[in-house]
Computed example of a mutant assay.
Amino acid sequence: MEWIVLAAALVLFYLLKMRGAKGVSNITAAELENRLNDRNAFFLDVRTNGEFKGRHIRGFKNIPLGSDFSKLPHDKEIIVICQSGMRSQTACKQLKKLGYANVTNVRGGMNSWRG
């Protein structure tokens, strides 16, 4: 019986962790491809410098997760990517807490990028 409660708690924790932050939009990598020339967006890659140097999308600025995001433009949509979508989701939550109104996460991150 205890293992059922533990398993249920783990599933609930995982589902809550995967749930998007309130007020954060999500787009796919395919949708991102259509947005790359959007001058009203700031493109943020929150992976490590090494990951970014290895492979990145032109137009994205590399500011690793854990950095100070408070200097990003407030008048643009912030589109955030990482390797899988987990760190970018965390960064989106941080941006919302800092008062950024228009924040978008790229679901699947670089793992889903084919461009």
Results as ranks from 00 to 15, higher is better:
Leu16Arg: 11
Val11Asn: 05
Lys53Gly: 08
Ala30Trp: 06
Lys17Ser: 14
Thr28Asp: 05
Leu16Cys: 11
Gly50Asp: 13
Asn37His: 13
Leu16Met: 10
Asn26Phe: 11
Phe52Glu: 00
Thr48Leu: 05
Phe52Asp: 00
Ile27Asn: 04
Ala9Ser: 10
Thr48Arg: 09
Tyr14Ile: 15
Arg47Phe: 05
Asn37Lys: 13
Phe13Cys: 05
Val46Lys: 02
Val24Arg: 03
Asn40Ser: 07
Glu33Cys: 08
Phe43Pro: 00
Asn37Gln: 14
Asp38Pro: 00
Leu15Asp: 04
Gly20Asn: 13
Arg19Lys: 15
Asn37Tyr: 11
Leu16Ser: 10
Asn34Thr: 15
Arg35Ala: 09
Met18Tyr: 09
Gly50Ser: 14
Met18Ile: 12
Ala9Lys: 06
Asp45Gln: 00
Ala30His: 07
Ala41Ser: 08
Thr48Gly: 05
Arg39His: 08
Val24Ala: 07
Ile27Arg: 03
Ala30Ile: 10
Phe42Ser: 00
Ser25Ala: 14
Leu32Tyr: 08
Thr48Val: 03
Lys53Arg: 13
Asn40Ile: 01
Arg35Met: 07
Ala21Val: 15
Asp38Ile: 01
Leu36Glu: 01
Lys17Gly: 07
Asn37Arg: 12
Gly23Ser: 07
Ala29His: 11
Leu10Asn: 07
Thr28Glu: 05
Leu44Ile: 00
Val46Gly: 04
Ala21Met: 11
Phe42Trp: 00
Leu15Phe: 12
Arg19Asp: 04
Asn40Gln: 02
Leu44Lys: 01
Glu51Gln: 14
Gly20Ala: 10
Ala41Tyr: 05
Ala8Thr: 04
Glu33Ala: 13
Gly23Met: 04
Leu12His: 08
Asp38Met: 01
Asp45Cys: 04
Ala8Ser: 08
Leu12Met: 13
Thr28Asn: 05
Lys22Trp: 07
Thr48Cys: 03
Leu10Phe: 15
Leu44Cys: 02
Leu12Phe: 14
Phe42Cys: 01
Thr48Ile: 03
Lys22Leu: 06
Ala41Glu: 01
Lys22Cys: 03
Thr28Gly: 04
Gly50Ala: 14
Phe42Gly: 00
Ala29Thr: 08
Arg35Leu: 08
Ala30Val: 09
Ala9Glu: 02
Ala8Glu: 00
Thr48Met: 03
Phe13Tyr: 12
Leu10Cys: 12
Gly20Lys: 15
Lys53Phe: 09
Val24Met: 00
Lys22Gln: 11
Leu12Ala: 15
Ala29Asp: 06
Leu12Glu: 09
Ala41Leu: 02
Ala41His: 03
Lys22Asp: 09
Tyr14Asn: 07
Arg19Gln: 09
Asp45Phe: 05
Asn49Leu: 12
Phe42Thr: 02
Leu15Cys: 08
Ala8Gly: 07
Val46Ile: 07
Arg19Phe: 08
Gly20Arg: 14
Leu44Asn: 00
Arg35Ser: 07
Lys17Tyr: 15
Asn37Glu: 13
Lys17Gln: 10
